[in-house]
Design a protein around this nucleic acid. Structure first.
Lengths: 284, 284
DNA sequence: TACTCAATTTCGCTC
DNA sequence: GAGCGAAGTTGAGTA
């Protein structure tokens, strides 16, 4: 009798059932009126109110109100759930170490509790991620610009890994930063950071160009890009992946495109351009 | 009879209760075996498995497996929930526009359904945020460095808003970026971006310094900081806010501290330094 | 509505 | 475990 549900249980009954569910490794939901206290990476407190508490066997705890996708309070996986009755209230405490943090949920009344064995079925397949965009660019480098030849993906620099690194039509280094959605100033900063790092790593005098590949870009980001001498190439998401076009910024391309003679000199450093397995494998 | 719970209901019963709950504005939890399809900003599909579905009256939908704090699939607030029986399965569809996206949850069997009126009690008070750190710095500018005089918070620049802007002991502009936790290269990029923007806005020739205020910093970030001629000041979180000290990087300070004569020249642009109300007010 | 950034971000990956 | 960046990020605040 694993799926269990209690109506208006006493705290004592709730306590029993919670501990039994923890032992079984069941997932538990509790509807009721409670207060919530959190202390750890920050600290928070939440006054009395009607809420949903979800307890997972992996140690996760979620406190949800009637609004928002994000829980109003929570505890990450790896925590340990305990329950007790104190001062006439049912206390559910979830805590973990490194970092040390504790979530306390105190119910004044429990309206409903349910427990259920939920196992497996976690492997979700997502299409339309940045990894997919990277694969597209590697397979079709002209999406970035004519003459672009990818040499490596995730190439390490002193400033972090570059999405796609290669050479332009003139054989000069080109840094490509990919974003699956509209970008702001932060993405420009990221690209500028990588370009600067590659510049310092190059034998001096070599100009390093940088291009931001994204569906669209904010005005401020565009100004910053120009300020830094960097470029932007608009790439629309494929129709089959994302149903809704984000912004019709179509086929624009202000990457300071070097005119194209001199077929790629092919400075063959870094590892070969290859898609680094973005195939999400089902793990049941 | 608002709190409702069904055991091993037929799809027909589930359908009825779901629609009633939507009408009442109740929050609903459903345990059962289902598949999940999402299409919108990206696309995803999830094979059959035991899961928890949470439906909120504000349009949020969450699909949870037994692991992880994050739902395996979801729909943001503002969506509309509908339910139907199709091909012998119970389908719960949640969709919204702008962006256009739809979540389809198809149950082959429902083990349990509960609905409950969850209203209000959403106002959580959080202590230890970046806003709190900002307040500390504004009230005690010497935390950044001796002679620092804040002139404005959230001062707008072409690169975005600067956390704290002011003048150093020499009266030269100082840009301060605050982080409540250990920082990496991205924070350095952010600070560099702001410093560059302020430099361009200053009458030429004026040196603009930048300091990253954070509990600690990674090696790579430190190198980048040095490369950019920027500084770091370690500030530990107050004991009462965060219980666990993140890293004992104590009282270090490699902000390229200018020696201190010349009491702050006070270039009085921007608005006055003032804490911008970080007091979270309860909204019930 | 769009922009900008924080978040108890979480999560996955690599070293 | 730390570091690094993506995310269907979400959410808050402001113009």
């Amino acid at each position: 009798m694993s799926p269990v549900s209690l109506h208006d249980p006493s705290h004592r009954e709730t306590l029993w059932e919670l501990e039994a569910a923890f032992d079984r490794g069941d997932m538990v939901t509790v509807f009721g009126a409670c207060t919530v206290e959190y202390d750890g990476r920050a600290a928070s407190s939440l006054g009395e109110g009607a809420r949903l508490l979800v307890l997972k066997p992996d140690g996760s705890a979620l406190v949800h109100t009637d609004e928002g996708r994000t829980p109003v309070n929570w505890q990450p996986p790896g925590s340990e759930h305990r329950a007790a009755v104190r001062d006439g209230r049912l206390r559910v405490r979830s805590s973990r170490t490194s970092p040390d943090e504790t979530l306390d949920v105190r119910f004044t009344s429990v309206s409903h509790l349910a427990s259920y064995p939920v196992t497996g079925g976690r492997g979700v397949d997502v299409v339309g991620s940045e990894a997919d965009l990277k694969q597209r660019v590697v397979e079709e480098p002209s999406l970035v610009e004519d003459g672009f030849e990818p040499a490596a993906t995730e190439r390490e620099t002193a400033a972090g890994p570059v999405d796609v690194f290669g050479t332009d039509a003139d054989g000069n280094p080109l840094v490509v930063e990919l974003k699956r959605r509209r970008v702001g100033p932060d993405a420009v900063g990221q690209l500028a950071r990588y370009v600067g790092a590659v510049e310092r790593e190059e034998p001096d005098g070599v100009a390093v160009r940088g291009v931001l590949v994204a569906p669209s870009i904010t005005d401020r980001a565009r100004d910053l890009l120009a300020e830094e001498g960097l470029g932007h190439v608009a790439v629309d998401p494929p129709d089959d992946a994302a149903g809704a076009a984000d912004a019709p910024d179509a086929a624009e391309s202000d990457g300071s495109g070097a005119a194209g003679a001199s077929e790629g000199v092919g400075r063959g450093d870094g590892d070969a351009a290859a898609t680094d397995g973005s195939g999400a494998d089902e793990r049941t």
